[in-house]
């Protein structure tokens, strides 16, 4: 039979394991999103939207906004 302190320690370790597992999955997901961002910029529709934004920014600068 385990004592309460040991029980609490085991529960803490179990929670920590779950947290680490979730964190690892979050990191994996983040890396996929980062790759998606690098791929996005090559897409024609994204390029078109970015060019439009650049144009708007340039107009804004010209107007001194």
């Amino acid at each position: 039979m385990i004592n309460p302190i040991e029980q609490e320690l085991r529960e803490h370790e179990a929670i920590q394991k779950r947290m680490v597992a979730v964190a690892k999955r979050m990191l994996e997901s983040k890396r996929q999103l980062q790759q998606e961002i690098r791929d996005d910029i090559q897409k024609p529709d994204v390029q078109a939207a970015i060019n439009e934004l650049k144009k708007r920014n340039a107009e804004r600068t010209e107007k001194g906004v």
């Binding site: 939207a49 970015i50 934004l53 920014n57």
Partner: peptide
């Protein structure tokens, strides 16, 4: 900076800095 919503399933936004970093 002015930003755009590109949409998609992952709700993508973009903006460009004064130094043209996207």
């Amino acid at each position: 900076y002015e930003y755009i919503f590109l949409g998609g399933e992952n709700n993508t936004y973009a903006f460009i800095t004064d130094q043209q970093v996207i």
